[in-house]
Simulated assay, not measured.
Amino acid sequence: MFAVWLKLITILCLSYTALTGPDSGVVWKDFGGSVTIQCRPPEPEQDSLTLKKGLSEDIDVFNKDSVSDKNTIAEQFKYRLQSNGKFPSVDILIKNLTSDDTGPYWCCYSKFDQKTASVIHKKGTGSVLLVVLLVVSGTEPAPKQCDTSSDKNLVVVSVVISAAVLLGIVIGFFIWITLKTKTLRNTVKPRRATTNDVYEDMRGTLRR
């Protein structure tokens, strides 16, 4: 359970700064509920609308163009996504929400520019960060804010672990120095004292 909330906090903190538009924000929904994303174009004339999901916008949830009435819906959202409104202003309804639906959703528009002969991509208004709450019976819903208490606990644990590792390194260093010093002392051989015994014997012989 802690890992789930840690992942949720990470998504919130990374995504919230990107959703700074006046019509953007965090939307909290219960498990099994529904959400309506109101996509509005940055300019009146647009060729297509794509609702993207993810921090890197790697999932195309819904696509609609100005020519045909055909909608393209991602497999995981089929049978629970509906669109209403006249293109390019489209309201997208997602029903039967699950925890996998949590994440940022972006209203992305594209238009072919004849002057530059290229496709111009722009974000419209209505992008949201969806958070699906899994409410367990007998417990209260999580607070609807980016709580930093878990982050503080992680920081404290990291500091304690780092201090313990550093202390172990210091103790190991002192032990190594002590053993090294003892080894050097044991390897030093004592010097032999020079004597003049042979010289004295020779002097005694000469006197005789």
Rank of each mutant, 00 (worst) to 15 (best):
L179C: 09
V159K: 01
P41W: 02
K182Q: 08
T116F: 03
G172L: 02
P41R: 06
G126T: 08
S83C: 05
T194C: 09
I175F: 09
I11L: 15
G126C: 09
Q46V: 08
T195M: 06
I94H: 00
L154T: 04
Q76A: 15
T10Y: 09
D151V: 06
S158I: 06
C108I: 15
T72P: 08
S89P: 01
E45V: 12
W5Q: 13
T187P: 03
A3C: 08
W106Q: 03
V128Q: 11
S68T: 14
N186I: 06
F77Y: 14
Q38A: 12
L55E: 09
V136N: 05
V188L: 11
N196K: 13
L14M: 06
L19Q: 03
V90E: 00
D147F: 03
T195I: 09
C13R: 11
L97D: 01
F173R: 09
S66P: 03
D91T: 00
P22K: 02
I73P: 13
G54Y: 03
D101V: 03
V165F: 07
E45K: 12
I9H: 15
V90Y: 00
L179D: 09
L154K: 09
D47A: 00
M1C: 06
R191M: 10
I175V: 10
G204E: 15
P104D: 05
R185G: 05
L167N: 08
C146H: 07
N71K: 12
S34W: 12
D151G: 10
T72A: 15
G33S: 06
I92S: 03
K123I: 04
C146I: 14
D60R: 12
R192V: 08
L130W: 08
K29L: 02
D60L: 09
C39Y: 01
K53M: 10
F112N: 00
D151K: 08
L6E: 15
S68Y: 07
K152I: 05
D197H: 07
L81Y: 01
C107E: 04
M1E: 14
Q145N: 11
V35S: 00
G168D: 07
G103I: 03
K70N: 14
Y79N: 15
A163K: 03
I171W: 01
S66G: 07
D147M: 04
S127A: 07
P44W: 10
V35M: 00
V170D: 01
V61H: 09
L154F: 10
R80A: 06
K111Y: 04
V165W: 04
V157T: 11
T10S: 15
C146D: 12
V27W: 04
D58P: 01
L129M: 04
T139C: 12
V155I: 14
V165G: 10
K122I: 00
